[in-house]
Design a protein around this nucleic acid. Structure first.
Lengths: 214, 214
DNA sequence: GTGCACAATACTGTTGACGATCTGCCCCCG
DNA sequence: CGGGGGCAGATCGTCAACAGTATTGTGCAC
């Protein structure tokens, strides 16, 4: 989106990888040293990531990594459901044969990961699958929005992958999505995607109830 | 979203109002004089509006008001359809009695505007109605995304309002939306909203065919 | 008249420094 | 012993100046 913002890209990656956990202060001078650039560049990156919703800036008090509450993660996932529903529909309508094969291959890998109970690999393949659908749909606007939303809720998504039995349930839903897309059934693809994300929301809401009680 | 960015707000308003038309160069020094702030503040505003998709920055070549092609306006409206479908559904589920009355009143005003063929007033009421639904839905994430998308395609939306007979068609669709929301029927509200925006997309696509031919 | 090299111009990108503001700590007073 | 005022450190916000790059205009050769 933004031209030549390698600093913002690096900082975004490090935030997503947990180098800077939610709530961590992002002090301009420190980042200056870490990335070897001037304070102005850091400032621009922080403004950009603020607009993306990844960091929070307060006047005269600096920037922090934004904390995403479970309630907000629910909202984010609801918005994703709407947009990825569109994406799934378009992907079903526009996928080439090669792309359909690639999706089936991805699903096979996911099945393997579940059988071997490799949660980390599954989580990665999960992201890959959703990302592939975004590219297949050839819809830049929705693609960008979804990528942003996914980044914002990344920590919760990761936590989700660790829930026992979650991967198996998720796999079934992904299979439905892939089947609908590969068979070119747009309506079914949209419905399957919505069902999938609705189940994610269910888990999140369960946490929300638990967290607020605690 | 971003704290204390009055410069970005003013610049955004002026871009949306057409003070700076699409393609216009935004020269930092000129903006410095216009807003009476330093170049650093202007820079921050430009980065922010770039992230919003309203301006485009090129390395060493400055910023321009972003041109939105008709094709991109179609994508934007498709994304809006998905998100505002969600919003309409939530609005139907969550609206208070006062809010329902307010929606009906707004619809009555729109009917008046159409009868008097006041396109300008209708266009404004149109925005008001969509904005009201966003607030009623109480969904910050979707609200922000939709507001951004609406800004990006603002010029095309405005052009749309001037199409002869468009207001009457639009009014019918808005009536369906308001009726579904006030009667608390979430599914119908979502469907009505999607139908409405699909018809907007139809008009846009028609232009696209015409524009590319010309 | 046309195309190319070159210089002048305009603007952006970056740096460094200064002033303003907030935070945490300590001391003094009650 | 606890609380408020003030001081010091840390950090942000802003400004002015400099350097780098793209663009425009000019003159010359052909």
């Amino acid at each position: 989106m933004v031209i030549a913002a390698p600093v913002a890209d690096r900082l975004r990656d490090e935030i997503l990888q947990g180098v800077f956990p939610p709530g961590e202060r992002l002090i301009e001078l420190q980042l200056t040293e870490r990335y070897g650039v001037g304070r102005a560049a850091i400032r621009a990156a922080l403004v950009e990531l603020d607009a993306e919703g990844l960091v929070q800036r307060e006047a005269n008090r600096g920037a922090t990594v934004r904390r995403i509450s479970v309630a907000e993660a629910v909202e984010i996932t609801e918005a994703r459901a709407a947009l990825e529903g569109l994406i799934a529909r378009l992907a079903a309508e526009r996928a080439t044969d090669v792309e359909r094969d690639r999706l089936r291959a991805l699903l096979a890998q996911m099945t393997d990961a579940v059988e071997q109970d490799d949660k980390l690999a599954y989580s990665k393949l999960n992201r890959d699958l959703h990302g592939s659908l975004c590219r297949i749909a050839r819809h830049r606007v929705a693609d960008e929005l979804v990528a942003n939303l996914r980044n914002r809720a990344a920590h919760h998504q990761f936590r989700l992958a660790l829930v026992p039995g979650r991967a198996a349930e998720s796999l079934t839903q992904h299979r439905a999505i892939v089947e609908a897309v590969t068979s070119g059934d747009g309506r079914a693809a949209e419905a399957a995607m919505r069902t999938h994300l609705a189940s994610v929301i269910d888990v999140l809401r369960h946490w929300e109830a638990f967290d607020t009680r605690a």
